[in-house]
Amino acid sequence: MNATAILAATGAVAAIAAVLGGVLGWVATRLRSDPDALVERIDALLPQTQCAQCRYPGCRPYAEAIAKGEADIDRCPPGGETTVHALAALLDREPRPVDPQYGITRAPRVALIDEDRCIGCALCLPACPVDAIVGAPRLMHTVIAAHCTGCDLCLAPCPVDCISMVAPADGQPGRAAA
């Protein structure tokens, strides 16, 4: 083995390293992940129940917290195992069970207003995160079952406790039991 061969080999390796390094650098700048896009993609995996059980005021805020690394992926009971797995796959983390401190995963339910007892106070209207309750002051209110996500948020404000959570009627596209 002579000096030229050694030089040639070193040179070749250096050249390959330089080229590959350049490519990697270029790829890194071109494909830099956009934080908003990440929030979008996380949000797309959340069930959009908007129930705030994750201690954030809705799915989007929770998605932002996950993207910033402030919250773990195990806080969404409505999404259950399916959602955790999807998030884990997206973020390349280890899937884990939903932390029971935030609630347990239940079969899908929808709110039902007992229309005889409803006093038309309108307090539940702003509470519903997805505008699934229709009504006006002093008129009886009702829940559009197809729009209801079963978040329970309308139960607390009702002064006469006339709202209950029931199993969705046949034909309602309830959440498939995970």
Binding site: D43, L46, P47, Q48, T49, Q50, G58, C59, R60, C128, P129, V130, D131, A132, H147, T149, P173, R175, A176
Partner: peptide, 19 residues
């Protein structure tokens, strides 16, 4: 079923944002 679920979630999200 999963498609239905995704569609429902999309719609709920849109209503939530409107809200």
């Amino acid at each position: 079923l999963a498609d239905l679920e995704r569609r429902r979630a999309r719609e709920a999200k849109a209503r939530y944002e409107r809200h």
